[in-house]
Amino acid sequence: MRNRPVRPAGTSRVASVMNAANGLAVTRPRPARRPVVPSAVLAVLVLVAAEAMFFAGLTSAFLVGKAGAGPLLWPPLDQPRLPVATTAVNTLVLLASGVALAIGQRAFARGRARSARRAVTLSLGLGVAFVVVQGSEWVRLVGYGLTMTSSTFGSFFYLLVGAHALHAVGALVALGWLARSLRQGHGSRDVLGAVGAFWYFVVGLWPVLYVLVYVW
């Protein structure tokens, strides 16, 4: 009973045509596979996708909050304005850091370990500079009375910029670790690609946040 073969039509014409096309029933020699994207890079890319959705959630919340508040409350009249110009320069610093890392990655791929190492260190330095300047701007803003609880504007400001800053700090730790392993001569292309993918995300996200929060 259990071995009774199902009538061939049991899978329907559509399905059997499809299955023949898929090679599900036909046996052909099977090639060995190579991954299209190395595992470490793929893992970071998946993480970046999730992070992108996280920031999409934050920014859409920000837009809803801003639309609900109206121009007079954004920022409220008694609250300080944001340092648009300083941050513009700082944005360029961060972008430069991203470019430096890209240069390092290329150099590494071409086997020029020394210039790769230098470029990664430069990228790290520029990234740290960005975070330090951001931090000092925060200290000034808090001094002027813009805090997390002073207004919805303040809450959203620190939420968005703070979330980005945390990501930047985390990515810089990874960059520092990468720079160290390059100096010790055991960096790999995959690790460079993985750390790079995350840092490009942090760098690329910032101009979007800058325009949304500071300019627009």
Partner: peptide, 23 residues
Amino acid sequence: ASAGPLIAGAIMLLLDQVAGTHF
């Protein structure tokens, strides 16, 4: 792909609960 926005919302809600924000 869907968890991100909820985590964003959860952070905002947690801040409302413990940090005195009013998102």
